[in-house]
Simulated assay, not measured.
Amino acid sequence: MTSTDELWSSKRILITGGAGFIGSTLALRLADLGAQVTVIDSLVPEYGGNLFNLRDCEDRIRINYSDIRDTFSLKPLLTDVDILFNLAGQTSHMDSMSEPHTDLNINCGAQLNLLETCRRLNPTIRIVFASTRQIYGKPHYLPVDEDHPISPVDINGIHKYAAEQYYGLYHSLYGIRSCILRLTNTIGPRMRIKDARQTFVGIWIRRLLEDDPIEVWGGEQLRDFNDVEDVVDALLTAAWNESSYGQVFNLGSVQRISLRELAELMISLHGAGDLVIKDYPEERRKIDIGDYYSSHDKFSAITGWRPRIPLDQTLERTLAFYQSHRPHYL
């Protein structure tokens, strides 16, 4: 047994959004490490939960069908937990603009209720909260580090940043051990591909599989991408690193690529396909951030974490996954 196995063996873990893309990948890893895993997911169709994501570990975990907005259902689940990975949230930027109060309830109100429940019932819990690069808005400089000004361009970014402030306050006032990871574009098997609510890469994969051209809006914007397995490594690392508590970290990659180049790479790996360059739709142009890529230097310096999986390997593995399991994701 490795030291990593010993660290996680029999630990009581709760994952909100655990049937979703990142949450299910984390649940699989933790189940393999011998942890006692409970996942919470509302399975609201718009938010990405999919029980097929958990098929490889459903006999080794506990699944609770509840909504993080329901404080009553959270209380018994949080009482005896060692570590909470809080991945539940509304992630669609466009949905946040059309339904701002729903975004407020999920990305702010539910987060405050969760922290207050932990303060009252389980103040020794450790929490890793998944935030987003979207809080920075349009970059003033690149790569974006944690000192970059906060200037969200949509409702989702405002609410995510407000939630971060709750976590910071509860750490400083009440000693709740929490760490915030600001994720960049995370991709890999189990992500949502039926639409672009979770990531535009998902809908690109769907179009490839259905022999439709990929629509690239703009095309020259630079982005960075993290493999979901690298993100899971970061989540696990943050949970146990005492120096991470009370802090905020960016994730990110050493590789940057334009949207056009990304589409061309995906077509090449798939072996067929086409792309169409289009102007940004007017409603999206208003919240487009242009080029964006992150610096993960702060997190790497403190924890030793670094992204390890090249983008082409991630895309190749992801495309193969959906070739085999497409019906379960459409």
Results as ranks from 00 to 15, higher is better:
G175H: 01
T38K: 04
L275E: 10
I180S: 07
K278Q: 10
L77F: 05
L7I: 03
I125G: 01
Y170V: 01
D279E: 12
A130L: 03
P139F: 00
I155N: 11
Y166F: 11
G175M: 02
Y65A: 07
D297A: 15
L28N: 00
R126A: 03
V276Y: 14
R285N: 05
Y329M: 06
Q313D: 06
I277E: 09
I83N: 04
L115R: 08
L265C: 04
G20I: 05
S324I: 06
E229G: 09
V37M: 03
H148P: 14
Y329N: 02
A239T: 13
D288K: 00
E58C: 12
R260C: 10
R284D: 05
G271I: 01
I176L: 06
R29W: 03
T16P: 08
Q134H: 02
Y161H: 15
M1S: 03
D103A: 05
G273A: 11
A31C: 13
M97I: 13
N241R: 04
V276L: 15
A35K: 07
A263W: 04
Q323E: 06
Y245S: 11
R192M: 14
F85V: 02
K75P: 06
Y245P: 14
W8T: 07
H270F: 02
N226F: 09
P149C: 04
A110E: 08
L14E: 01
T186P: 15
G20K: 03
L236D: 11
T71Q: 03
I302S: 04
L236Q: 13
Y141P: 07
W8Q: 01
K75V: 12
N113P: 13
Y293L: 01
D70I: 05
E283Q: 11
R326E: 09
L33P: 01
I127M: 09
N113S: 13
R62P: 03
T184A: 12
T199I: 05
R29Q: 10
R177P: 05
G304P: 13
S131V: 04
T91D: 02
Q165P: 14
R223W: 03
R12K: 11
S9W: 06
E210S: 09
P76K: 00
E6H: 15
R326D: 12
I15Q: 08
T25W: 11
I287G: 01
L262G: 06
L311M: 15
R260V: 10
R69C: 14
S9G: 01
D274T: 15
E316S: 12
A238Y: 14
Y161K: 13
K194S: 12
K278I: 11
L87D: 00
P143S: 03
V228T: 07
P100S: 08
N113W: 08
T102W: 02
A110I: 14
W8I: 00
F129G: 04
E229A: 12
Q36R: 05
D147P: 09
Y47H: 04
F85Y: 10
I203W: 02
Q90E: 00
Y292L: 15
K286S: 14
E164G: 08
R60C: 10
D41H: 00
G202Q: 12
L30A: 06
E220S: 06
S42F: 09
H270Q: 09
Y47V: 00
I22A: 15
L169W: 11
A239W: 08
E242L: 05
